[in-house]
Design a binder for these strands. Structure first.
Length: 334
DNA sequence: ACCTGTCAAGTCTGG
DNA sequence: CCAGACTTGACAGGT
């Protein structure tokens, strides 16, 4: 099994490399020339896209081909007071360049809309806002020229509202009503408080989208599953969500999210780095089940955490741990 | 240059 | 029923 590693949004190694620069609405609304203010937002967005491309080159330099872009590319993109603003035309070239570079280098790009994208909500206005938010992310991928087989948006099922089963059903119902353009862009991830692996998997199967397994979320919200049910039942079903109707693997390999608990006091928080031991144990358990796997590192130290993890992998390789480090961003479990 | 409070958002909890 | 917690990186405004 070939495993590629990636990281999220920003680098702690590069200087002045935030892809999430912004302007608050308070500042925007104080500017008296609205058109000029909009141009300023567009300029910030363009800078964020240039920085995103710079981060992608940084990835490739380190043999990293899995990268999640920040959701905060276009400041105030979905703000209610900016309805009617079309920020995309001036950003088209910058977005196209990102897509071209990703395809040229074989990079897997993704988005993870924040927890405000909730298709289980009972509130129509929140559902409408969720559609808007997802549309924003999908529109960017479209402008990048990355089709739905190449780039996805990962979300959670959402809130439980005191009735988890009913909320899951509402998720499925409301999700099915989405335009195919949005539906076909989704992956679903188990969360750390509410929807467990089994519950998320049920929803993913019902709406026919791939499921991303977050092993840290599972550790703190396991729904009483054992290793036996995880490896014997749930994981094979998760893998099946990454195949087409013909049973053939999708273009995108299955994806895993990995992080380590921040502390005993805050077990759900993300630590600076990722512990190599538990991750490697998991990878070994599933090594025979798929040829390829992409692992998203979600650590406070971002790219530095990925580099440290790879250094740990090299050490284990030298100790004869049955892994082969292929390059700076991928390993083979043998 | 640095520090503290605020911002975005929706859900959930405590009072 | 409403205020505050939660989460995160960056702004905004003060020193």
């Amino acid at each position: 099994m070939i495993v590629r590693f990636g990281f999220v949004a920003m680098s702690v190694m590069l200087e002045n490399a935030s892809p999430s620069r912004t302007m608050t609405y308070a500042t925007f609304s104080k500017l008296d020339d609205r058109e000029a203010a909009l141009r300023r937002l567009e300029r910030i967005a363009e800078d964020n896209l240039r920085t995103t491309l710079r981060l992608m080159k940084h990835c490739v330099h380190h043999d990293v081909f899995v990268y999640r872009m920040t959701s905060k590319v276009i400041p105030l993109a979905t703000h209610d007071a900016l309805k009617g603003w079309n920020p995309y035309p001036p950003l088209e070239e910058a977005m196209a360049e990102i897509g071209r570079y990703a395809k040229e280098k074989g990079m897997r790009l993704s988005f993870h809309p924040d927890h405000f994208c909730v298709f289980s909500t009972p509130r129509p206005e929140v559902l409408a806002k969720s559609k808007e938010d997802l549309t924003y992310h999908v529109t960017m991928l479209e402008h990048m020229g990355l089709d739905e087989s190449a780039a996805k948006c990962n979300i959670h099922v959402g809130g439980a509202y005191g009735d988890k089963a009913g909320s899951a059903e509402r998720f499925v119902r409301q999700f099915r009503e989405l335009e195919p353009r949005l539906r076909n862009r989704i992956t679903l991830e188990n969360d750390d408080k509410t929807f467990t692996v089994r519950e998320t998997l049920g929803a993913a199967e019902a709406v026919h989208v791939p499921m991303v397994l977050d092993i840290h979320h599972h550790a703190v919200n396991d729904g009483g599953e054992t290793d036996g049910t995880l490896y014997g039942d749930l994981w094979p079903r998760i893998l099946r969500t990454w195949t087409g109707p013909d049973g053939q693997p999708l273009a995108l390999p299955p994806k895993l999210h990995v992080s380590s608990p921040k502390s005993e006091r805050d077990p759900r928080g993300h630590a600076d780095l990722v512990e190599v031991g538990p991750l490697l144990r998991f990878l070994r358990e599933i090594a025979g089940s798929t040829d390829r796997l992409d692992v998203m590192i979600e650590a406070k130290q971002k790219d530095a955490a990925l580099l440290q993890l790879m250094a740990d992998m090299r050490r284990l390789e030298a100790e004869g741990a049955g892994i082969r480090v292929i390059d700076g961003g991928s390993i083979e479990i043998t």
